[in-house]
Design a protein around this nucleic acid. Structure first.
Length: 589
RNA sequence: GGGGAUGUAGCGCAAUUGGUUAGCGCACCAGACUGUCGAUCUGGGGGUUGCGGGUUCGAGUCCCGUCAUCCUCGCCA
């Protein structure tokens, strides 16, 4: 390379006219006018127009999109009518005095333009080209600024950044672990961390007091638009704290991120909602509160209903009837209601009961099963008027509310009620500590087994559904972006939790024995939280997929299309590890 | 594991009820052009319609299977 850049392609302005510069970059486009030729040069910082006399630099006739070039020349003002106010560097151009071809490029498989219509599959295969596009680059730059800010804010609050192992002990609890076989100890495996949970708690016992880490976590579960098998968390743990202390730290962080990355002020403390409130008012533990349409509970009002669906729902344990009222629904097409029923069914509801209020009574849906007296009670309770649409859930607590909560979201989106300029951050607190697993017929920890209960634990075998934990989520515009808890620091309580989830002393010892010993040596009261960085970037940049926030993401089936992983290993690798596959995928072509 | 969508030239799309030589725009190649702005103008090349079967005189189109990608339910302490 003969010509090394002195400036970048995004920075030259009218005030630089007259100065000699060297630019390095990629050819974005060539506009050849015969007697003169314009090169649009691109780098990470922007675009600059280069004017070349092709008679003096015949080399430029060979240039094509994505060739890498160096241009030495002089910055000059463009002639009056040739200025381009739409571009930051539109007032100037660089008159080429020297041109060096640094590298050629094949014709790219798709055009490197901002509004690429190319299917994602191909863009992921050529992700290195996709990242040359401004929108893709913006998301990655944004993410880099965010992680830089996070480190600054956390260090300013006396947190120490500490790395924890990637190769660690596997745990069959929770999500599936990715396993890594050990060659040195044949027949044994490491697990990749689902989170550094126990390590960070151990650091508290060591007295490190305030820890954070921006760490990769791995979960071998099915993917979604907002779920990748490896993702990045801001992991935080603090000693001698209560829930509110964790909140203050994260609120300060979020305020700084919004302010410095988006120039947006958010106010703290963020509102709190208990899990029970969130479920009954919004039908979700991550409610989108940017629009209204709150639910109401009409189980008591409809307890005497002769409608069989309602009767059966109320007969179930924790059975209930939540209702969603859509005001002024005359214009709502039947199609939308049918769609909503599909939504409710996909979340486990048997159907979606509905009716429209009329002057005389009600019409449509289940109106003929509802008595005049019941209608009157409903109108009074819901403050409902003629023209309103009522949609009912009827099932066990979680199913009925989740289904009707999703119907609420569906109408919120369909009726365009969500104000996307708003930023709603809120804490959801007091989650149940246990969840019943009907398949395995036992209670499981809702979050993890190291979460402190809020109440005295009942005797083993009794109903644990009422027990809540010091357990909280942070919700941003209807997305869970963080989850944490105050932990158990007393070994005797930890033992009782193991007992409740059906772990014998021996099993607990085998899985977590090392950590139980940690708790035995003066564990301080402590707690923490973990924030999903990918999701935060996704929401703050308005991306529609987590893949847009990750430099090299994986597809919904866990493949990296650029490197073609996962792949079939060499037999020699397997032999060294002593691994014999029972099944194999299709052989390599 | 279940449900849905998509797959036609390098890219984005079209092709009527199953019908004759599978089109259009961009990109690409060649030529022209001294003020363009994802230049313009003229001309040109490029297709095993994801793959495998089947129905039919005839399949991009219909049927079955399969693969890939996307969305989603379950799952994700």
């Amino acid at each position: 390379m003969r010509l090394q850049r002195t400036r970048t392609c995004g920075e030259l302005r009218a005030s630089d006219a007259g100065s000699s510069v060297v630019l390095n970059g990629w050819v974005d486009s060539v506009r050849d006018h015969g007697g003169l030729l314009f090169l649009e040069l691109r780098d990470r910082y922007g675009y600059t127009q280069v004017v070349v006399d092709p008679e003096r630099h015949p080399l430029v006739r060979e240039l094509r999109a994505e060739f890498v070039v160096a241009v030495g020349g002089q910055v000059r003002l463009r002639p009056g009518d040739a200025k381009n106010a739409a571009k930051p560097t539109g007032e100037i151009e660089v008159e080429a005095l020297d041109v060096e071809l640094l590298n050629r490029s094949k014709t790219p498989p798709f055009e490197i333009v901002d509004d690429s219509k190319t299917r994602e599959e191909l863009r992921l295969e050529y992700r290195f080209l996709d990242l040359r596009r401004r929108p893709a680059l913006n998301a990655i730059e944004f993410r880099g600024r965010m992680t830089g800010l996070i480190r600054r804010v956390m260090q300013d609050q006396q947190f120490i950044e500490i790395e924890t192992p990637i190769l660690m002990k596997t745990s069959p609890e929770g999500a599936r672990d990715f396993l890594v076989p050990s060659r040195v100890q044949p027949g044994t495996v490491y697990g990749l961390p689902q989170s550094p949970q126990l390590f960070k708690q151990t650091l508290m016992v060591s007295g490190l007091d305030r820890y954070f880490q921006i760490c990769k976590c791995f979960r071998d579960e099915d993917l979604r638009a907002d779920r990748q098998p490896e993702f990045t968390q801001l992991d935080v743990e603090m000693s001698f704290v209560r829930q509110e202390d964790v909140f203050r730290v994260i609120e300060r962080l979020m305020m700084t991120l919004y302010d410095e990355l988006l120039g947006q002020k958010v106010s703290a403390p963020f509102p709190h909602l208990t899990y029970h409130e969130a479920m009954t008012r919004y039908g979700s533990d991550k409610p989108d509160t940017r629009f209204g349409l709150e639910l109401a509970m009409v189980s008591d009002e409809l307890r005497g209903s002769h409608f069989r669906v309602f009767q059966e729902a109320l007969a179930k344990p924790h059975g209930c009837i939540p209702v969603l009222r859509i005001p002024d629904a005359e214009a709502i097409p039947r199609r939308l209601i049918d769609e909503a029923e599909g939504v409710a069914k996909s979340y486990g509801a048997k159907g979606l009961a509905w009716l429209k209020l009329t002057d005389g009574g009600a019409t449509g849906g289940i109106s003929k099963f509802v008595t005049e007296a019941e209608l009157a009670v409903l109108r009074a309770k819901l403050n409902a008027r003629t023209g309103d649409l009522l949609l009912f859930g009827a099932d066990r607590f979680e199913i009925a509310l989740t289904a009707i909560g999703q119907v609420r979201l569906h109408f919120g989106r369909a009726l365009d009620l969500i104000d996307r300029s708003k930023t709603h951050l809120l804490w959801i607190t007091d989650f149940p500590l246990f969840a019943w697993n009907p398949d395995e017929k036992r209670w499981e920890a809702m979050h993890h087994m190291f979460t402190a209960p809020r109440q005295e634990l009942p005797a083993p075998g009794e109903d644990l559904s009422k027990v809540t934990g010091v357990l909280y989520d942070l919700v941003l515009n209807g997305n869970e972006i963080a989850s944490g808890s105050i932990r158990i620091h007393r070994p005797e309580i930890q033992s009782r939790i193991f007992e409740h989830v059906g772990l014998t002393r021996e099993e607990a010892e085998g899985k977590f024995g090392w950590f139980l010993r940690v708790l035995d040596y003066g564990a301080p009261p402590h707690g923490g939280i973990a924030l999903g960085i990918d999701r935060m970037v996704m929401i703050m940049t308005g991306a529609s997929s987590l893949r847009d926030t990750i430099a090299f993401p994986k597809t919904a089936s866990g493949s990296c299309l650029m490197t073609d992983s996962p792949s079939v290993p060499d037999q020699r690798q397997l032999d060294e590890l002593g691994i014999l596959f029972q099944r194999r995928g299709p052989p390599e072509p």
